[in-house]
Design a protein around this nucleic acid. Structure first.
Length: 230
DNA sequence: ATCCAGACTA
DNA sequence: TAGTCAGGAT
């Protein structure tokens, strides 16, 4: 949930999500419709499917991995999240670099904006106070999120995104939102129910094709659209 | 108008 | 390495 999404926005959704799917088994067996209903508002809907897939992998595994290599095999867990789990849950002496920590390292002269991810990790490993990894990373992230922000430091993030308003991403999000609260819709019915402007059928058709390929939307036998069962 | 506790696929 | 993934806050 926290991947590219503000903590303040995640916190209420996290509680809602844990209430809806209290155990890994509940999440692993969740149907796509209720999963996306609870996820609605967080964005990047693919992450919801990936998180469920990770839950399915963990149920299959039967135990919770406690090393980076095994965690990286879970869908949606990259270098940041896999290390974060080991740091924040188990206080392991590892480092992880998020947008905040990267900015703090640069702002205080320990790194440069040009450094690669592995170079930043090398720098961070020299600074890590062993045995206090959990507190250390919380401190660095809070410092970056509240004091040495992107705005105050004028340090640009590594990745930027195009406009969201009137984008195809906005259209896809609107489509998923409509379908999660409706059973099945034809293309025309879908277009008429979208709550955003600028939605000509061609754009909607293209967006639907992409959503289908991602597994977020399914096409029925008679050419209508719906949220897939699983 | 920018950016947010990134990761996936090509 | 580059392009793509959603939506809200400021």
């Amino acid at each position: 949930m926290l991947q590219q999404t503000q903590v303040s926005r995640v916190i209420p959704k996290y509680h809602e999500f844990m209430n809806a799917f209290p155990t890994l088994k509940d999440l692993a067996e969740a149907d796509t419709r209720s999963l996306l209903q609870v996820w609605s508002g967080l964005g990047y809907n693919r992450r919801a499917l990936w998180l469920r897939e990770a839950a399915q992998q963990l149920v299959e595994l039967g135990e919770f991995p406690q090393n980076v290599e095994e965690l990286r095999k879970l869908k949606g867990l990259g270098p940041y999240t896999s290390r974060s789990i080991l740091i924040f849950a188990f206080n392991q002496d590892l480092v992880t670099i998020d947008t905040n920590i990267r900015r703090v390292l640069i702002a205080n002269g320990y790194a440069t904006e040009e450094m690669s991810e592995t170079e930043l990790q090398d720098v961070a490993e020299h600074l890590l106070p062993k045995g206090r990894s959990c507190d250390w990373h919380n401190a660095l992230m809070d410092l970056g999120a509240t004091v040495q922000t992107a705005r105050t430091t004028r340090i640009a993030p590594t990745s930027s995104q195009p406009r969201f308003e009137r984008s195809s991403r906005q259209l896809r999000g609107a489509i998923v939102r409509v379908l999660t609260f409706t059973d099945t819709l034809s293309l025309n019915e879908l277009v008429s129910q979208l709550d955003i402007e600028c939605s000509n059928p061609n754009e909607v058709r293209e967006a639907l094709g992409q959503l289908v390929s991602e597994g977020l939307v399914a096409c029925t036998d008679n050419g209508e659209y719906t949220i897939p069962e699983c």
